[in-house]
Simulated assay, not measured.
Amino acid sequence: MKLYIKFMVSLRCKLLVKEELEKLGLHYVVLDLGMVDVLEDITEEQREKLKLNLLKSGLELLDDKKSILIDRIKNVIIEMIHYTDELPKVNYSDYISEKLDYDYTYLSNIFSEVKGITIQQFIIIHKIERVKELLLYDELNLTEISYKLHYSSVAHLSNQFKKVTGLSPTFFRQLKQKRKGNLENL
């Protein structure tokens, strides 16, 4: 039986869900971001208990089909951008459609209707968050980050970064170094 869990977007969340399943004596086959495939049928009592325990940790057990699909779309994007070393070589639309086994137009329409932004805008927001993360790590230069996240050029990355954050990537990196310097002076 597949269960879909909202806000389950990190390894810590996966561990939390695993713990809650163990408390209820439930076994799982697959435990992925946003989804767990439980071996047993779950009683209504177990489901309610799991729902309440997850809520205490900021996670939400989903019931409605639209919410489940939206969460699955978000998790595919988050996993693709934040948890894989290499972004897919195919179009994001093809990748998402293939992963979820739905027509992209259908996914896109439902996502926009429910979230109020397009899938593409959601991808851009997460790519910029990933760029910020990589800038803070200070291990890659802008050209390497641009290549890693499949931007057509450093200029494209910089323009998108500035549009979303209001800052240039270089200025963002300098802010980090200024903060670090200020902390050392305390």
Results as ranks from 00 to 15, higher is better:
114 V>M: 09
61 L>Y: 02
48 E>R: 06
176 K>W: 15
170 T>N: 12
72 R>I: 04
147 Y>L: 10
50 L>H: 03
104 Y>R: 03
5 I>L: 07
85 D>C: 07
31 L>F: 01
173 R>T: 05
7 F>Y: 12
30 V>E: 15
72 R>S: 07
142 L>Y: 02
85 D>Y: 06
22 E>V: 12
70 I>G: 00
162 K>G: 06
94 D>G: 01
141 N>A: 07
106 Y>M: 10
186 L>G: 09
53 N>T: 12
87 L>H: 04
105 T>N: 15
101 D>F: 08
26 L>V: 08
13 C>Q: 11
60 E>Y: 13
72 R>N: 05
19 E>M: 10
62 L>I: 04
65 K>E: 15
34 G>L: 02
86 E>W: 13
71 D>Q: 08
118 T>S: 11
136 L>P: 04
174 Q>W: 15
69 L>Q: 07
138 D>P: 03
4 Y>D: 02
25 G>H: 11
9 V>A: 08
183 L>A: 14
1 M>V: 14
70 I>R: 00
62 L>T: 00
48 E>Y: 09
28 Y>T: 04
148 K>F: 14
22 E>K: 10
74 K>L: 03
5 I>G: 00
29 V>H: 12
46 Q>V: 06
2 K>Q: 15
146 S>T: 05
14 K>D: 08
130 R>C: 09
106 Y>G: 08
67 S>V: 02
181 G>N: 11
36 V>G: 00
114 V>N: 06
32 D>Y: 04
180 K>W: 14
163 K>Q: 13
77 I>C: 01
28 Y>K: 03
83 Y>F: 08
